[in-house]
């Protein structure tokens, strides 16, 4: 299974990349839901990306997370399917 993860705004800056593909041998992947995937990425990369995505080890509720352009909750597990596009949009407030 292959899933594309897209980073916008501060997430792109912190990840150092606009998008990337993650693969799993299982289809669909029971242990790779949106929330666990993003936590995994945050913990693996650490640094600014982890600070942006996690609060006390949990996904920040201020992130807009989407699968195929539809928002999903940071608190509930959303199963991923082959070809899904996961979008991570942190909040921004400029105006400046």
């Amino acid at each position: 299974m292959r899933v594309t993860v897209e980073y916008f705004g501060p997430a792109r800056e912190a990840a150092g990349i606009g998008s990337e593909t993650h693969s799993s041998p299982h289809t669909p992947c029971a242990d790779m839901n949106v929330q666990s995937l993003i936590k995994h990425i945050a913990l693996e990369r650490g640094g600014r990306l982890a600070t942006l995505l996690l609060i006390d080890g949990e996904l920040s509720r201020s992130l807009v997370l989407a699968v195929n352009d539809r928002q999903v909750s940071a608190e509930e597990q959303t199963e991923l399917r082959d070809g899904d596009v996961v979008t991570i949009i942190p909040p921004v407030s400029g105006g400046a």
Partner: peptide, 14 residues
């Protein structure tokens, strides 16, 4: 959401 670095654009249903 638009990223002008590569002109990616997403309209997410919230």
């Amino acid at each position: 959401t638009i990223d002008t670095r590569d002109m990616r654009l997403r309209t997410v249903q919230v």
